[in-house]
Design a protein around this nucleic acid. Structure first.
Lengths: 192, 192
DNA sequence: CGATTTTTTGAATCATATCAACGTACGTGG
DNA sequence: CCACGTACGTTGATATGATTCAAAAAATCG
């Protein structure tokens, strides 16, 4: 249990067997069926979720009620509404499952205790968020400086597994486009 | 010296006098004249810079050689090419001064020593990057889900001091727009 | 003051959004 | 297993909005 979680953890910071046991006590497994919510806008986000298996997305609704996806997350990734989690303000994002999924949840109290008890947990958290920050900055750079063709090609090169497993209109949403536009962009790319 | 740095640090994690002295030994002050580079694309980023005074920007060049600004930073903020800093790969961003500025630099070796020696430094770093992550996620959400009028209004409401101190065409660049387009957006907003 | 940079405006062009329709694949219940 | 309904993706025509290029007006700097 929690294989992938500890595998990823040890990639960032190597744990002793004892540390691993302490951490295990603070984890909660959770299964999610496809389309099931992990978090709904208006709730307070009470956990950080690590994905052992499956796929989730995080999105908000724009003024017209359209879903705008700000993140996909597959096995080995972490997903949460961090702002809501840290401040206990109500969440501004939805999170739901795109496939049947298996998660490892870290509740707020577990998170706080682990930060106090296990120094390597803080290091893990720091490295985790740093990686997420760098990835998001790259995405932002590509949004403000590249053409749509380039952005989509980059995306497919970087995340081929997302492209395979997620419907195209959701990728359009992730890119801030209409589904029709992404369809036409794909045609333009393939006709080269 | 380093007043603002320690003020911001203590807001996140309260330091004892001794801890503060240890940290001070690892800091380097640096003054930058307006337009001077802190980092050029192609160099390796060797520091994290905290801004005591002044204003900087981080940007990359697109295919046509246009500057695309991905971050502004004023007093109290931190700026760096984190990816380059952490991996020692060459930087993909430029950083330069928009005003005469005073910085506090943390070199890579200082950073690593501080992480080992001062536990609170790791906490500070973690909270710092977490805040930056959340702010960037909000920016991204607004990019993929709001109209340009809303985005600009949000920006001016959130960062009035940036709007005052930075030329408008740079804010256009930050928003991924042509200067003419931002000018017209401003007119549309003010005519309401 | 003069020179340079920045912002604004106008007109033409190009790209994306929108609306509507169609084709296809998928899953469910009969 | 088939028939049906629902999701999804594509295509076309039109509308909307941003870009581009050129020029003038306004603000800033030495």
């Amino acid at each position: 249990m929690y294989e992938l979680f500890f595998q990823e953890f040890n990639k960032k910071v190597a744990l002793t067997q004892e540390e691993q046991e302490v951490i295990k006590k603070h984890l909660t497994p959770k299964k999610l069926r496809k389309k099931q919510y992990l978090l709904q806008e208006g709730d307070v986000c009470k956990f950080i979720a690590f994905i052992e298996k499956g796929a989730l997305r995080q999105y908000s609704l724009d003024d017209n009620g359209n879903e705008r996806i700000i993140q996909f997350a597959l096995e080995g990734w972490t997903i949460s509404d961090l702002y809501s989690f840290l401040t206990s303000e109500i969440a501004t994002y939805h999170i739901d499952a795109l496939e049947d999924s298996e998660l490892v949840l870290i509740s707020k109290s577990a998170h706080e205790e682990l930060l106090l008890k296990v120094a390597k947990y803080e290091t893990y958290t720091r490295l985790q968020i740093t990686g997420a920050y760098i990835a998001m900055q790259k995405r932002l750079t590509s949004i403000i400086s590249s053409s749509l063709e380039e952005r989509y090609s980059n995306f497919t090169a970087l995340y081929p597994n997302i492209v395979q497993r997620v419907p195209q209109h959701m990728i359009a949403s992730y890119m801030g486009l209409q589904p029709e536009t992404l369809s036409r962009i794909r045609r333009r790319i393939s006709s080269k």
